[in-house]
Amino acid sequence: MNISVITFPGSNCDRDVITAAAEITGKQPTAVWHKDTDLGNPDLVIIPGGFSFGDYLRCGAIASKSPAMDEVIEHSLRGGMVMGICNGFQVLVETGLLPGALIRNKGLKFVCRDTNLKTHQHGKDIMAGFQDGEEMVIPVAHNEGQYFADDDTLKRIQDNGQIAFTYTPMGDETDYNPNGAALDIAGITSENGRVLGMMPHPERKMSDTVGGADGRRLLTAIIEASQS
C-alpha cells in the first residue's frame, strides 16, 4: 500500500495525515514536496489541509497549479485514487477534478467544531468501505468551506451519486451545518468515484484520547478501498 502526501508551502496538516496513515497501514507514506514531479507510484494520494500559499488569491488556487498537482491530475486521469481534506478539497476543486467551489462560510467566521457526518455512497470505488447512512463525528476547521455549485451541477452530482458526506444533526441539533454548504454537503466524489474531497478532518480523530476514533474508521475505509 503506497500513500503519497503532498506538501505545499503553508500546508499544516501534512504531518498529521502522514502520522495517521502510518498508524493505519504500518508503513510510512511518501512525503511529496510541491515542486516534485515524482509521486512515488501511489495507490492513494492525499492532499492535506492547511493554508497552501497563505490562501492568497483564492484558497487552493495557487497550489492547484504546482508541478506535483500536474502529476496528481495525471494519476487521477489514469483512474488513481485521490483524497483531499479541507484545503486539499479546495485544491481539488481548483484543479477541476471535483465540481463546484468552496466559498466563505455563511457566518463569515472561521469555524472549528465537531460535526456529525452521514455517508451517502457505499460499496464502490473510494467509498467502497462504507455502509449507506453511517454516522461519524469528525471536526471541521475552516474559513472557506461552504460548498457551492450552480443548480444544474448540484442536480447532476445528486443524480450521479457523487455526494459522499453530508452534515447531519446530532440528536435534536438545529445548527448542524457549520458553513451553510449547499445540500449540507461536507464531501463529494468525482464522476468516476475515485477522487474524494471533504472539508472535515478525519486525521484529527484517531483515538478516544483525542476525542474519538471515527476519523480512524473513515481513513481506514478509504485506504482499504484504494488498495483493491
Binding site: 496538516c13 489541509g49 467566521k109 469555524v111 472549528c112 484529527r204 484517531m206 483525542v210 476525542g211
Partner: peptide, 14 residues
C-alpha cells in the same frame, strides 16, 4: 471565541 480557533491541528489536543 474558541470556535474561531483551530484547536485540533497537530492532532494531539486532548
Amino acid at each position: 471565541i474558541w470556535e474561531q480557533y483551530d484547536r485540533d491541528v497537530m492532532a494531539d489536543t486532548v
